[in-house]
Amino acid sequence: MSENPSNNEYWASNIRLVTYCLVLWAVVSFGFGILLRPLLSGIMIGGTDLGFWFAQQGSIIVFMVIIFFYAWRMNALDKKFGVDEE
């Protein structure tokens, strides 16, 4: 059974998109919220320091943005490879 090259390209694009989204999520939630928190503690936003804000609110907001971005990009990839829903 031979695989269609466009299927391989579709899944490679899908995995690349998932990887980018997960890296961004990790950088924002773990990087800014935990590792870089001491560096961000002097910057105030919303009555608290930026490191705490990223740990409590920023990572959630970025995660929601990533969800909508992923859905938008996957719809574009589906149309590009002809596997979109009618």
Rank of each mutant, 00 (worst) to 15 (best):
I43Y: 05
F63R: 02
D84A: 14
G47R: 10
Y20C: 02
D78M: 14
S6D: 12
L36G: 02
S41T: 03
N7Y: 10
L17D: 04
F52H: 06
D78A: 15
G51N: 01
L22A: 08
I15Y: 04
G82M: 06
V83E: 15
F63L: 07
F81D: 08
L39T: 03
R16L: 15
V62D: 07
I43N: 03
L50I: 01
L22R: 03
G46I: 02
I43T: 08
I60H: 12
W25T: 01
L40N: 01
I34H: 13
L35P: 03
V65G: 07
P38S: 04
K80H: 15
F52V: 06
V27C: 08
R73P: 02
D78T: 11
N7K: 13
G46Y: 06
M1R: 08
N8P: 00
G51E: 01
M64I: 15
I66R: 00
A76D: 07
F32K: 00
I34S: 13
S6E: 12
W11H: 14
P5Q: 12
K79E: 14
W53R: 00
L50A: 01
V28D: 07
G82E: 10
E85M: 08
F68L: 12
F81R: 11
S2Q: 15
N75P: 03
S29W: 06
F63D: 10
K80Y: 15
F63N: 04
M1K: 07
S2W: 07
F32A: 00
I43G: 00
V65L: 11
L39Y: 04
I45P: 01
V65K: 04
L35T: 06
E3I: 13
Y20S: 03
A12W: 02
S2D: 15
V27W: 11
A26D: 10
R73H: 09
E86V: 03
K80I: 11
M64S: 13
V27E: 11
E86I: 00
E85D: 14
Y20Q: 03
D49S: 08
V62T: 10
L40R: 00
E85H: 10
A76P: 00
K79T: 13
N7W: 09
W72H: 14
V62H: 06
V83S: 15
W53Y: 12
Y70A: 12
A55M: 09
N14I: 04
D78S: 15
F81Y: 15
T19Q: 05
M74Q: 15
W72T: 11
L22N: 06
A76K: 09
Y10D: 06
N75M: 08
Y70D: 10
L36V: 04
F54G: 00
E86C: 02
S2N: 14
A76C: 07
W72I: 07
A71R: 13
R37M: 12
E85P: 03
A26H: 07
A12C: 05
N7R: 13
L39R: 00
Y20I: 04
I15K: 08
F63H: 05
V62S: 08
L36N: 01
G47C: 08
T48Q: 12
V23G: 10
I66S: 02
E3G: 14
I61E: 07
L22S: 06
R37Q: 12
I15D: 06
M44W: 06
A76I: 07
F32Q: 01
R37P: 01
M64L: 15
Q56F: 14
L39P: 01
L35R: 01
S13A: 14
G31W: 05
I34V: 12
A55K: 00
F81W: 11
A76E: 07
